[in-house]
Design a protein around this nucleic acid. Structure first.
Lengths: 363, 363
DNA sequence: CTGAAAGCGCTTACAG
DNA sequence: CTGAAAGCGCTTACAG
């Protein structure tokens, strides 16, 4: 049986008020405090958090909602969030595993304002007006990771994926590649549409052919979906470079290329997006656009902490700046030692979410 | 401002008791019920979960503690847990991200009996007497995934990784490989020691050389640590097959082999453990021992549900049976179509955690 | 079927 | 410094 405050009070011969005060670090006569602490230890007392939350109107818990934990980028993001929050004394509750249709909205609704979290960080694959409205109406602070419609009144962390895509295309262009294909993610997701749009804009800017045959999109962010979509691409046109909308899709494409006897990067140079740890898993290793998932997670957590401390603070948006991480799939040989993290886990390179130059404030 | 039961009661012109009853599905006169539901909808009322938990003495939340979410096997496990729990009306709270030293114990202590979870599922990398004692003393039900010391009084899900390792060695032996090296994980972790022991036993049973030079262990379950440990192996002896203690370590080894010009599987056949989705990411794809992480997660969740329903039920242990998933890294060519999941995400192959023949009860 | 009241385990003014 | 008491928002016997 769990022991309660009253049990400790009886054991120590004092009132529950004194027990509560001592255990929360308020001053008391040394003798009293000692007796209370001793009694608490003996009984193995731990405060009931539900009762505590009810009284204090705070749970010391933050909820993180993501759509697909299978994607390593989300794991990195989670790490970033977790580290910052833990240091601030919050527990993290993760919701929404799997990539069910509109889990974002329903879970957000479910979590927000139910008294089980003091704040919410959400990174939805799909962002629509309804979701924005739900989040704006939240009784607890919300931070959104991902690009929001203009005018949304929410603290927000974004990454300029367009400029990331541009970095990749410039890199390929600089290597002399002129027919760059694009293997996109589902266009009914936020990153899916944005990365496709980014590709088109950057291709135009570089004077690359705006050939629709060079574009193919998957219907899921999975290895298997990528195989199908990439087969379509291979079947109808030729290209000397490929940009894939994330690392897993890129690796799927590399596998197909390998099976068909096309060499990477000689015949086709390949670039992914996310710079997740799987970039090290393929042969050759994968050049990728780093979107700073862990850093974005940490930024969101700090934004939430700030809002929790001051509900009246002005709305804020933080923007992460992408970097290109060059590896073998474009240059054919490993990076010189010391430049980046040639084979190690990419996520550890930006291990400290507090440091680093890529963060940029906005608005 | 959040609205409360009292607000709804006032709005509907009834008592809070009636509101509570109607909203919890108890019978009421149709007119009353309608007015209450209408008022609740208008006010956007959602019950305060902290208050509800305090009164009902249950949180409808279960805590899952794992040591390293970066390992895809844990993600699969989480999916298994989540699906079963969600269907039963529980929310899942994930704790303990990252692989800090003894996070297992401290987090378990922190979560258990704090009134924020009705039950706990824990899959610790390290299991010692202290942890077992803490868990046995838990005021809420606990299920442990992982091998426990004899006599531990805890519901438990295990997998016979020794027999999994044996399957792998028999496979390699059947392919004519006689010098099988072992790239192990950290021996201060549970899976690390068990998989090493399994290797030794199986090697002996098959009459393979018990040469200590054929064994090398990492100091972390990471790609980078594997590179170092595998270099030691390559530097001191020769072998025609390699068993790695998990998929990531195996992929690291394959990369090194590739760089040194050794062919897989012709020169060295490679087998991993976990059958995680990264087995599809390497070239060649990776043969691996499936330990049914998702199924173990689901089994643990069902064990917990059972215990929650009947605290007096006899202790129970469920054991998952490993299977070998053969791919290119040992046979040199993809599996025939229809046999397993040649290139797709392995985790989806065992998508339904309720079905399947590999589960085996024990004790 | 419905309401008044007690109580879940805490914290915190308010007195003393 | 310490205790008695109120109250956080719910649920649920207990009467009516």
């Amino acid at each position: 049986m769990r022991s309660t405050l009253a049990d400790v009070a009886r054991e120590a011969g004092v009132s529950v008020a004194s027990v509560s005060r001592v255990l929360n670090g308020h001053p008391a006569r040394p003798g009293t405090a000692d007796r209370i602490r001793k009694a608490a230890a003996e009984l193995g007392y731990l405060p009931d958090l539900a009762a505590r939350s009810l009284k204090m109107r705070r749970t010391e818990q933050v909820s993180l909602v993501v759509d697909d934990l299978g994607n390593p980028a989300y794991i990195d993001m989670m790490r970033g969030v977790e580290r910052v929050l833990r240091d601030a004394g919050y527990r993290l509750q993760i919701s929404a595993i799997g990539s069910d249709a509109d889990l974002g909205t329903s879970t957000a609704l479910h979590t927000v304002s139910r008294g089980y979290a003091d704040g919410l960080i959400i990174c939805p694959l799909r962002i629509n007006a309804e979701l924005v409205q739900v989040l704006e109406a939240s009784p607890i602070p919300v931070v959104v990771i991902g690009t929001l419609p203009r005018g949304a009144r929410l603290d927000n962390v974004t990454v300029d994926s367009s400029s990331g895509v541009r970095l990749a295309l410039e890199h390929l262009h600089g290597l002399g590649r002129r027919r760059v294909a694009f293997l996109g993610g589902p266009v009914d997701t936020n990153p899916g549409t944005r990365r496709l749009a980014g590709f088109r804009t950057a291709a135009r800017a570089l004077g690359l052919p705006g050939d629709p045959e060079l574009e193919s999109v998957t219907d899921a962010w999975t290895y298997e979906a990528a195989l199908t979509a990439f087969d379509r691409l291979l079947g109808r046109t030729d290209f000397d470079a490929l940009l894939a909308a994330n690392d897993v899709l890129a690796i799927a494409a590399m596998h197909t290329l390998h099976r068909r006897g096309r060499r990477v990067p000689q015949d086709v140079a390949v670039v992914g997006v996310d710079d997740s740890e799987v970039t090290a898993f393929s042969t050759p290793t994968l050049t990728s656009v780093a979107l700073g998932a862990q850093r974005r997670g940490a930024m969101a957590a700090r934004l939430l902490l700030r809002r929790l401390a001051d509900p009246e603070a002005p709305l804020r948006r933080l923007r992460e700046v992408p970097r290109l991480q060059v590896r073998e799939s474009t240059t054919g040989s490993a990076e010189p030692v010391g430049a980046g993290h040639p084979t190690a886990q990419p996520s550890t390179a930006a291990a400290d979410p507090h440091a680093g130059p890529a963060e940029q404030e906005h608005r």
